[in-house]
């Protein structure tokens, strides 16, 4: 839920990266963290298991700059992708302003993508959101691997509503900032509509 503070002239928005386990959600945040100037970012917090799998969430606060006299802050979260962490996943969606779905392009992860997307729609519904109305971007990650489904087939299967689609190789930064920019743009333009409160 966007938080507009007129006293400190700040706008805070929450973006959640969703998708199947080991799809590259945390890698997206890590790349953004590594490539952003120190003054524009806070600490990257990872609540992870001993084997570096996301247990609850990763969190990265990002200061994008000033628009119309207001400091624009984005809080980026990931959810744990593993199926059995559904209760935790649901909690992170509370107050979300925009969603990024990080799909794993590998052939053998196709079912996991579909299942995770279905799970996203279900969990959003439980918070009273409709994926068709929430700012949303689809990232097709791991495009550098040999066993990937074609972009056309993957898009046809996962596309929901004409959302922007980006090919990604998150560990090398390919598509990472294009994805972030696209979701930030949708969220901020949504605020223009939400002026009525």
């Amino acid at each position: 839920m966007t938080f507009i503070n007129y006293a400190s002239r700040e706008i805070n928005c929450k973006i959640v990266y969703y998708g199947p386990g080991l799809g590259g959600k945390t890698t997206n945040l890590q790349y953004i963290y590594d490539s952003t100037a120190a003054q524009a970012k806070g600490k990257l917090i990872s609540l992870a298991t001993e084997t570096d799998r996301t247990l609850f969430f990763d969190f990265l606060p990002l200061d994008l700059g000033t628009v119309r006299g207001f400091k624009t802050r984005f809080h980026l979260y990931t959810v744990p992708g593993q199926v059995f962490y559904d209760a935790s996943r649901k909690l992170i969606l509370k107050g979300v302003d925009g969603m990024v779905f990080v799909a794993d392009s590998q052939r053998e992860r196709m079912d996991a993508n579909v299942e995770s997307l279905f799970n996203l729609e279900l969990n959003l519904k439980q918070h009273g959101y409709d994926l068709m109305k929430v700012p949303y971007v689809l990232q097709l990650n791991k495009r550098d691997l040999p066993n990937v489904v074609s972009t056309a087939d993957l898009t046809a299967e996962l596309h929901r509503k004409g959302e922007p689609v980006f090919e990604g190789v998150a560990n090398r930064g390919v598509g990472v900032f294009d994805t972030l920019k696209a979701i930030a743009k949708q969220v901020l333009l949504e605020l223009r509509k939400d002026g009525s409160g």
Binding site: V67, R68, K185, L188, L189, L191, G195, G197
Partner: peptide, 14 residues
Amino acid sequence: SLESPFAEITEEDI
């Protein structure tokens, strides 16, 4: 309507 600071935001701003 509550005055949204972003009511006039443009794609160029973003």
